[in-house]
Every structure is written in structure tokens, then in C-alpha cells.
Amino acid sequence: MAFGARMFKTGLAVTLALYLTQLLGISSPVGAAIAAIFAMQPSIYRSWRYFLDQIQTSTLGAILAMLGGYFLTNQPIAVGLVCILVIMICIKLNMGETIGLTLVTVISVMEASGQWDFAFNRFFLTLIGIISAFLINILVFPPKPKDQYFKQINSVFDKMSLLMRTAISHEIKDSVYRDEMNSLEGSIKSIGDKYNLFEEEQKKLKRAKYSHSRQLVVYKHLLISLQKGYEVLNAVENHYFQAKRSGEIDEQFDAHLEHLIKFHEHILWKFEDKLKPNVDEADTMAEKNEAFMDQVICGAGTEPGGFRMTIVAAAMYDYGHTLDRLNSVADHISRFVEKKNNGGDILAWLKR
């Protein structure tokens, strides 16, 4: 596992929380450290939302815990009942992500069994931990999910390109291929999680700019293109080698995969302003995609086991169709940025 900024910041947040509790002369600082660990979030927006939501649910949980501890004492069944009530309230308020830390607060406060000073001390520790994590997250290596998104897109594409260019020739060892496929699947899922962050922020911010909506469209198409490429690799692994085929068919499929991955590469170069818009290439690719599917249906698809070949060809056709749409988005955004910024950098605009 690679050492990342979030790991480092979690450690810093715990350190800050512990130092603050020492400066304030508060005993048993473990609660603040636990709160800091829970409160570290992957984006500034989510960190701010978590901060606000956690303050509300922790306050509510502490009040219920103090009342429960006062009237019911700290018997296990009483603690369990208050925890159930707090979970129900958090879910009702659509603040499910705060349940874990809120329950820690409830249990800590109920330990006081009606001793208000001790209960307030436990609640205050939770606030110190939340605030420490929030401050560290926005001040130290603030999250830049958009920069990370495009770095991951290029990294995943490079890995997928290697697998796709050797999928038919079967040059990679089986064990290595499986490991690379698993790694590719995890990386695409990670990109999907980052896209969900953008989408969540877009939906929650009522005054989001129209340009942000355009950016979201680009992010989505970039993600879908990788997902479709992964589906091609899955189809090849599950169906291609189980079907009867000739050397000519292998060359046909391998050549078309090369055309697709090269087209994908050129589209990504457009987003990086390394390549001019090329309408001819897009038209040629669309024609090749149609011709390839027709050839498979009329040729390999009629052979014994041809249904499997058709499944692989359909996945490749779908991938090509997705790339055609991504290319249209790239050309459209290029014209938009050029008109808006009098010739600006597409990638810089997407990362704003």
C-alpha cells in the first residue's frame, strides 16, 4: 500500500488533538484522537459537511446520553437503548456517516451516569478531535481530487493499454495478467469513487456554475470509457480463447483492438492539448467499428462457437461507440474553452 497524504494528515490530526487536550489540561485524551481519525475526509467539501453534520449529531447524542445516564444510569441495556435511538435519529436526518463517532460520544458520555461535568468533558474531547481533523484537512496538503482524477485516468489507461494490446496475442503470463486485471478493476473503482465526490458536490451546491456541469459530463465520459475498455478485457478473458478461431481471426481482432486503444490515446491527448481536433480520424474509426462488427457477424460469428466471438466483438463495438462519444465531448469542450478563454488549456479549465 502506497503512503498517501490522507494517512499523513490523519496522523497529524491525531497529534494535534492530543496536544490540544494537553494544553487545555483535559485528562483521558483518547476520545479526541478517536474523533480525529473518524473525521478525516477525502475532500474539502465532504470535510466541511461532515464537520457540520457531526457537530449536530454529536450534540444531540451527548444530550440524549446525559439524559439517559441521569435517568437510566449506565447499565448496559440503557446504553444499548440510547444507541439504538441515536442511530434511528441519524438515519432519519440523512446523516448516516456520522453514526460511528456519535455512538462513541454517546457511550463515553453515558459512562458518566449523570455526572454533568464528566459528560461535558467527554463531549468536548469529541469536538476537539473533529476540529483538529477539519483544520489539518484544509491547511495541510488540501485534497485536490480533480488533479488526482486526471492522474489516475492516465495511469489506468496506460495499464489498460498494455493489457489490451497483448490480450489476443496472450503474451503476458496468466498469473501476471490476473494480478494486473485485479489491479485495473480496483483502480477504476477508485476513479469511480472520486467521480461520486464530484457528483455529490455538484448536487449539494445549489449555486454550482454551469461550467461545473460541463466538467462533470467530461469526468463521467472519461470514467465510462475506461469501464468499457475493462469490459472488453473481461469479454476476451471469458469468451475469446474458448471459441474456435483461425490465425486470420486473431489478426482481425488484434488489429481492431489496436485501432481502438490508439483512438482512446489520441482523445486523451486532446484533453491535454497535445493533439488538434481530427474529424477524419473520428469518422474513420466509426467506419472501422461498423465494418469490424459486420465482418464478425458474417464470418467468425457463423463458425462453431461463434456466439462467443460475437460477445467479444459486441464489447469492442460498444467500447468504440463510447470512444466516439468521448471524442465528440473533447472537441466540443475544446471549442468551448477556446471561445471562453480565447485559446485556453482544456486540462487547466477542467481542474478549476
Rank of each mutant, 00 (worst) to 15 (best):
M1S: 05
T10P: 12
G11M: 04
L12P: 00
T21N: 07
G25T: 08
G31Q: 14
A32E: 00
I37K: 09
A39N: 13
M40P: 00
I44M: 10
S47E: 13
W48S: 12
F51R: 07
Q54P: 13
Q56N: 06
Q56W: 06
L60C: 03
G68E: 07
V79R: 14
V82F: 06
I87G: 10
T98L: 06
G100M: 15
L103A: 01
G114V: 08
W116H: 10
F123Q: 05
G129I: 07
I130K: 15
I130L: 12
A133P: 15
I136K: 02
N137D: 10
N137S: 08
V140T: 03
P142M: 15
Q148C: 03
Q152F: 01
I153R: 14
N154C: 08
D158V: 05
D158C: 12
K159L: 07
M160V: 10
L162Q: 01
R165N: 07
T166M: 14
T166I: 10
H170G: 00
M181P: 03
N182R: 08
K189R: 10
K189T: 01
S190P: 00
I191Y: 01
L197R: 06
F198R: 08
K203A: 12
Y210S: 08
Q215Y: 08
K220V: 01
L223Y: 07
A235K: 05
N238Q: 09
H239A: 11
E248M: 01
E251I: 15
H259C: 14
F263Y: 08
E265T: 08
L268P: 00
E272Y: 05
A282N: 09
D283H: 03
A291C: 09
F292K: 09
A300Q: 14
E303W: 06
R308S: 03
A314C: 14
Y317H: 10
L323Y: 04
D324F: 11
D324I: 04
D331P: 15
H332P: 09
R335Y: 13
N342I: 10
G343L: 07
A348F: 03
W349V: 04
